[in-house]
Design a protein around this nucleic acid. Sequence first.
DNA 1: CTTGCACGTAACCATCGGGTTAGATAGCCT
DNA 2: AGGCTATCTAACCCGATGGTTACGTGCAAG
Lengths: 121, 121
Amino acid sequence: MPADALSLTFAALADPTRRAILKRLAAGTANVKELSRPFDMSGPAVCKHLRVLERAGLIRRGREAQSRPCQLEPAPLKQVVAWAEGYRAFWDAGFDRLDVYLQKAHAQRRKEVRDARRRKR
Amino acid sequence: MPADALSLTFAALADPTRRAILKRLAAGTANVKELSRPFDMSGPAVCKHLRVLERAGLIRRGREAQSRPCQLEPAPLKQVVAWAEGYRAFWDAGFDRLDVYLQKAHAQRRKEVRDARRRKR
DNA sequence: CTTGCACGTAACCATCGGGTTAGATAGCCT
DNA sequence: AGGCTATCTAACCCGATGGTTACGTGCAAG
């Protein structure tokens, strides 16, 4: 339960139900009843999922009469992509060469690290 | 604990320690001892984290003497980005318009409700 | 005012997740 | 062989999560 934002976002996304809710919300705002329909679970369960999504900043809830419409808030998704993009170098074209390079570089570094540690004691 | 791959990946990423491990592995393969050093926690804990990462397909483990080197496996990250990209329309250029549109639609609907009520009296 | 509906909270239960310590297993080094 | 090191497993603790049912709240409509 780390308070860190990125962790909250990933945790919120680590559930198919919640991702389905987001997908549904991508088509427009919806109230809780509408959202709970497709999922075979009772109200409060969906409510909890919504709270999780809200705490992660992925949705915003308004109040309108007795209906409480939910709206998608994509900012955290942007953060997620930004984070993952940091690893892009590993999955596109150059990856194989990069891998080999890193393994070589690493053998070198491992020696250094070991020596450093030995020096430390 | 959904067996679904994307959920496994997100769940694995929803922990700062594991993300730090990935970051470390981006600099090259490393064995468990090396990985546990920066984090103030004892061996088995790191071991569990590694198992989670492995089950998510984010790392691959080899065997080399008594050391078991871990290697970054970026494919799932690609999946993550691919998934999140589906929402790109919401956070770049077009989003503001969409947001405004939704808010307007909302105001409109609220107005209708209010008018309906006024008409009723 | 009373009924009905949408939504939320409360209390509870089962399971999971992250962490610990203690003890196996396996491979190098004298 | 016997010890040292690195890794994993087992058993356990505790807080978080995902779900349930039952009840409370707010608003609108009859």
